[in-house]
Computed example of a mutant assay.
Amino acid sequence: MKLVWSPETASKAYIDTVKLCELFQESSVAELISAMAAGWNAKLVVETWSTGSEIATSVGLAVATRHTGGKHICIVPDQESGEEYVKAMSISGQESYEIIVGEPQEAMEGLEGIDFLVVDFEENNFARMIRLSKLGHRGAVLIRKNASSKAASDFRWRSVVEGRLRIVRSVFLPVGKGLDVAHVGASDGSPSRTKGESRWIKHLDRESGEELVIRK
């Protein structure tokens, strides 16, 4: 199976997010991310958030999961951030989400089947978070917010997912402070073989009962 795009669902989430985010006057990024999450029919949406971050994107993700019937989980570093997040979300009337308090890297280890992940570029150990994430069997969409800095311009998705995930496509969008988006294909999480790499295969000869090891 793989992610399948639904323009109708994307459009509905986009419009609903535009209406809600007028409260925050920050809808340019939020409406786009919401449309992507809904359009790809994301069932498990995960984001990171901390005190002082904008809330519009979170509102958009809540809207998207309402349209897809999915689950929206936000990882916050401490209790203070969690309380601020709840307060900010309540202003827009959003209640269908879960909060995990703790280090993002540790929280990732307890989540399985992520098919839409949104992380701020300024998040510490961003690459490790991606490597620890257990993505869905349909593939996933990975997004880095605030990706327009000099350090972000040197970023390469392949350096993060090399040997583990297959990048279907990636693109940088000059929206807001910059969005880096990668669509990765379905994978069992095992390292992929590079071109020309050999492997050993065990083969049992039924007639002689002898076990052979063949290099391919």
Rank of each mutant, 00 (worst) to 15 (best):
R131Y: 13
L3N: 12
K12T: 05
K2C: 08
E162Q: 13
Y97D: 03
F126A: 14
S58P: 00
S6Y: 09
L132E: 08
I75S: 07
E83F: 13
K195Y: 11
D154P: 04
S208M: 03
R131H: 15
F172R: 03
E207S: 10
S27Y: 11
K19R: 08
E22A: 05
A127R: 05
G178C: 07
S192C: 11
P104A: 01
G93N: 10
S58H: 02
V4F: 08
A56Y: 00
I99V: 09
K87T: 06
E31Y: 01
A10I: 12
E106F: 02
K19P: 05
A10K: 11
D120N: 12
E112R: 04
A182Q: 00
R169L: 06
T48R: 10
G60S: 03
A140E: 01
E210Y: 02
K216Y: 09
V160E: 00
S170F: 03
I91Y: 13
S190N: 08
V171Q: 13
E83S: 10
S34D: 11
G178D: 09
E109V: 10
V119W: 02
E123F: 12
S92Y: 04
H67P: 00
W5M: 12
R206P: 05
S192I: 15
R193Y: 15
V4D: 11
G110W: 04
N124P: 15
G110Q: 02
G185S: 12
G39D: 02
Y85K: 13
S192P: 05
V86G: 12
D205F: 01
S192V: 07
A107F: 00
E47I: 07
R206I: 00
N125Q: 15
S90H: 12
R193V: 15
S81G: 10
K134D: 15
T48S: 09
R156P: 03
F121E: 14
Q25K: 15
E84T: 06
Q105D: 03
L3W: 12
W40C: 01
K71E: 05
G70D: 02
S208W: 01
A151D: 11
N146I: 06
R128C: 01
A140S: 00
P77Y: 13
K134V: 15
I100C: 08
L20P: 00
T17F: 09
E207W: 14
A35L: 08
T194M: 06
F24G: 07
L179I: 09
S6T: 03
L32I: 14
V119C: 06
V45Y: 04
A140I: 00
T9I: 13
L204K: 06
P104C: 01
K216Q: 03
L23F: 13
E83M: 12
E80L: 03
G185T: 04
S92W: 08
R158K: 13
R215D: 11
V63Y: 02
S53H: 14
N125I: 10
I167C: 05
E106R: 09
L61S: 06
